[in-house]
Design a protein around this nucleic acid. Sequence first.
RNA 1: GUCCCCAUCGUCUAGAGGCCCAGGACACUACCCUUUCACGGUAGGUACCGGGGUUCGAAUCCCCGUGGGGACGCCA
Length: 470
Amino acid sequence: MIRTRFAPSPTGFLHIGGARTALFSWAYARRHGGSFILRIEDTDLARSTPEAVQAILDGMRWLGLDHDEGPFYQTQRLDRYRAVIEDMLVAGSAYHCYMTPDELDRLREEQRSAGGKPRYDGRWRPEAGKTLPTPPAGARPVVRFRNPTDGVVAWDDLVKGRIEIANSELDDLVIARPDGTPTYNFCVVVDDWEMGITHVIRGDDHVNNTPRQINILQAIGAPVPRYAHLSMILGDDGQKLSKRHGAVSVMQYDDEGYLPEAVLNYLGRLGWSHGDDEVFSLPQFCEWFDLDHITPSAAQFNTEKLNWLNAHYLKRAETPRLVALVQPRLEARGVTVTGEPSLATIIELHRERVGNLNELADVAEVFYIDLHPRADLLAKHLTPETLPMLSNFIERLPAIAWETTAIGALIKEIVARHGLKMPRLAMPLRVLLTGMEQTPSVDAVVAIFPRATVLKRLALAGRVTGTGSS
RNA sequence: GUCCCCAUCGUCUAGAGGCCCAGGACACUACCCUUUCACGGUAGGUACCGGGGUUCGAAUCCCCGUGGGGACGCCA
């Protein structure tokens, strides 16, 4: 039974890197009929917030990554960690250390300036025949893990291959603060053990924690899970993503009009591949996903490709769903969606032309507002040459059949009679009806409006007569 | 500084010694379609970081170099 987990710390939103880690962990469990566990690592009381927890939950839900167990909160498992620490203290695999943060800082400074690796020097580590300093009166100690001093820790990383690190590189890490709260590396170990995690799929930045965690696992007699370390995602500019630079919440993609399946597809293909396949659904991804085809190198995020995928999914999405997605966006702009044409009609006419939901809202908006085309566009297209054609068109409108073909035929007829090209009439019609120079086929645009609305909007041509020239 | 990791088109990648004078996708360019702009279609250019090995043969294996990244917390 495969058991994976996603274990974010609630110190901010769910960003794109976390989302990919979650996706891969989730997909691996789904692929093998296993369980996916969500665990909130909130032991940093100072930085964790309930808002961040909610933001992560929201992000996961938007993406559709459901968990089978949890969410578990580490702050609710403190008794459990404390019990394990007690056992370790008794067993001698952990010990109290009374060194103050100040002393530690000084030590690290010295080591660094001496060109060495900053690390705890083991002054409070009990050894056979060693006399420990006397604990300062009233001081509360931290608990340190007694790391092996020789040999190597090694594991076969499912993404990076075999990694070996000498124990001499590791120092005795703090596993509990003076107030008794456990620290990250320790909680992870206890949780992964007790939650029966078989495959730890996480970010690259945890590679250095892995040997420490394996050592603790072994000290408490827990089995060592398999590890798969994913490389990081770089920003569009090739720079590392950080709060300050480029890291955005997955929910921002929602705001920007992306469909979750597009983001998921993009993320799935970022750092993982299935031959030449580029477009695949989430179920298809679950069927294909494996750890063998994950790239070990860092990947640069490419918004243009995401845009392409989004446009692709927009073309295929069910219209009612798009209506439900676009309508609130229009309402948020203060646009009331009412009357003709229906939002569904507008969407069907424009869906192949736009890249995201906001662009769909942009084009839909002009059908519902009191339109005021820009003066420069009117001047450009309402010319002495085109105005006669327009009035001609307006005169004939009441009598024709209200459907695209008939409207198109009328436009062609008028244009031909005036000995001009199609765009000479199509462009002013576009501007008058939508305020835009780029629209779908103009006969189709005319046709989705009620006849009365077309007449009303075209009437503007009469009022600006004579202003256009040049 | 020390340790660890990484290295194919601009970008994401295929490639597990001969199928590769390197394939796909995004982007780009040209053409086609055309009622504008898109969409779509067709065609095209662009890459194995460098140097040594191993081998009949290397993008693929090994070593060194270079470059990039990560980690060295009483953060996660």
